[in-house]
Amino acid sequence: MDANSPILFFDSGVGGLSVLEPTRALLPNAPFIYVADNAGYPYGKRSEAEIASRVPALLGRLVERFHPRLAVIACNTASTIALDQVRSALDLPVVGTVPAIKPAAELSKNRVIGVLGTEATVRQPYVDNLAAEFAADCTIVRHGAPDLVDLAEAKLAGEDVTVKAVRAAAQPMFDAEAGDRIDVGVLACTHFPLLLSELEQAFPGVTWIDGGPGIARRIAYLTREQPWPSEPEEGIMVFTAEPRSPLLGTLAQYGIGDARTI
Rank of each mutant, 00 (worst) to 15 (best):
129 N>H: 14
147 D>K: 13
133 E>C: 04
23 T>N: 05
19 V>C: 11
90 L>W: 07
103 P>D: 13
18 S>C: 05
76 N>Q: 08
214 G>M: 06
108 S>G: 11
190 T>Y: 05
232 P>G: 04
123 R>Q: 14
84 D>E: 15
190 T>A: 09
67 H>W: 02
239 F>T: 06
92 L>Q: 06
139 T>C: 10
176 A>H: 05
112 V>Y: 09
115 V>S: 00
198 E>Y: 03
235 G>L: 09
157 A>E: 11
106 E>L: 14
24 R>H: 09
217 R>V: 06
140 I>W: 07
103 P>N: 11
92 L>P: 02
85 Q>H: 14
124 Q>H: 08
253 Q>M: 11
198 E>A: 10
69 R>G: 02
109 K>N: 15
180 D>T: 08
161 V>R: 06
157 A>K: 04
213 P>E: 14
78 A>Y: 00
129 N>G: 07
22 P>G: 05
87 R>T: 03
215 I>K: 12
17 L>Y: 09
151 L>K: 01
189 C>D: 08
37 D>Q: 05
48 E>W: 02
134 F>H: 14
180 D>Y: 03
51 I>S: 04
228 W>L: 14
262 I>D: 12
63 V>M: 10
243 P>W: 11
213 P>H: 10
77 T>H: 00
260 R>K: 10
70 L>Y: 03
165 A>R: 09
17 L>T: 12
117 G>W: 00
132 A>W: 06
191 H>L: 09
52 A>G: 10
19 V>S: 10
252 A>H: 13
14 V>M: 13
152 A>I: 04
172 P>Q: 13
6 P>A: 04
220 A>N: 08
3 A>G: 00
75 C>I: 01
199 L>G: 09
170 A>I: 04
9 F>N: 05
148 L>V: 03
246 P>F: 11
146 P>C: 07
162 T>V: 06
163 V>C: 00
197 S>R: 14
34 Y>E: 11
259 A>S: 15
75 C>S: 13
154 A>L: 11
191 H>K: 09
238 V>K: 12
4 N>I: 02
70 L>S: 06
105 A>C: 13
8 L>G: 08
156 L>N: 12
132 A>S: 14
56 P>C: 09
152 A>W: 02
99 P>T: 06
130 L>R: 05
12 S>N: 03
237 M>D: 09
173 M>H: 05
10 F>C: 02
160 D>V: 13
175 D>L: 13
79 S>Y: 01
117 G>H: 02
258 D>S: 11
173 M>I: 07
90 L>H: 07
50 E>A: 07
125 P>S: 12
129 N>A: 15
143 H>L: 03
61 R>G: 15
61 R>N: 15
96 G>F: 00
208 W>C: 09
168 A>E: 15
201 Q>H: 12
120 A>V: 02
222 L>Q: 13
188 A>L: 01
77 T>I: 01
79 S>N: 05
240 T>Y: 07
184 V>E: 10
70 L>N: 05
166 V>A: 05
38 N>F: 09
90 L>E: 06
105 A>Y: 12
117 G>K: 00
